[in-house]
Simulated assay, not measured.
Amino acid sequence: MTPADLSLTVLHAVRRAVDDGALRVDVPPLVKVERARPGGAGEYASNIALTLARPAGRTALDVAGILKERLRDAPGLQGVEITGPGFLNFSLRPDAGAELVRAIRESAPAYDSGSDTTLSAPALAAPTPSGGAFPPYGSSTALVGTVVRFAESAEARAALVTETVVRLLRAQGADAGFGGAERIHVRPGAYDPTGLGVDAARWALLRPAPQDRPLDGPPLLVQHERNPLFRVRYAHSRVRRLLVNGEQLRVTPAYETDIDAPALLGALGDHPAVLLAAARHRAPDRVARHLETTADALLAFQHTVLPLGDEKPSAVHRSRLALAEAAGTVLAGGLSVLGISAPDRI
Score class of each variant (00 low, 15 high):
336 S>K: 02
247 E>F: 13
335 L>N: 00
257 T>R: 11
241 R>P: 00
38 P>D: 12
284 P>F: 06
219 P>E: 07
18 V>C: 04
89 N>G: 07
136 P>T: 14
194 T>V: 03
129 P>M: 02
36 A>P: 08
262 P>Q: 03
78 Q>C: 11
291 L>A: 10
20 D>C: 13
336 S>M: 03
139 S>H: 14
304 T>H: 08
107 S>Q: 11
195 G>I: 01
292 E>W: 08
140 S>V: 10
333 G>R: 05
237 S>F: 10
287 V>I: 15
122 P>C: 10
113 S>D: 03
225 E>N: 12
202 R>E: 05
34 E>L: 02
311 E>N: 14
95 D>L: 14
170 R>V: 10
266 G>Q: 02
318 R>P: 04
57 G>C: 12
12 H>A: 14
268 L>I: 10
58 R>D: 10
21 G>C: 12
13 A>G: 09
130 S>M: 06
170 R>D: 09
341 S>I: 03
138 G>V: 08
75 P>Q: 04
118 T>C: 08
182 E>Y: 01
295 A>H: 00
285 D>N: 15
102 R>D: 15
47 N>Q: 09
125 A>K: 07
72 R>T: 11
61 L>S: 11
39 G>N: 09
126 A>D: 12
168 L>D: 00
76 G>W: 01
253 P>K: 10
100 L>D: 03
67 L>K: 07
224 H>I: 05
271 H>R: 02
320 R>P: 03
33 V>I: 15
52 L>T: 13
98 A>K: 09
345 R>M: 15
287 V>M: 07
41 A>D: 03
201 A>Y: 02
1 M>W: 06
229 L>A: 09
152 E>N: 07
107 S>N: 13
129 P>K: 04
235 A>D: 07
109 P>Q: 00
163 E>Q: 13
218 P>N: 00
186 V>A: 05
102 R>T: 14
201 A>K: 06
268 L>S: 01
334 G>P: 04
264 L>R: 07
9 T>Q: 01
92 L>S: 03
132 G>D: 06
151 A>C: 07
167 R>M: 08
222 V>G: 02
302 Q>E: 08
275 L>R: 09
282 R>Y: 12
20 D>I: 12
325 E>K: 14
340 I>Q: 02
196 L>A: 03
75 P>F: 00
307 P>S: 11
345 R>D: 12
239 V>A: 09
85 P>D: 05
156 A>Y: 07
307 P>I: 05
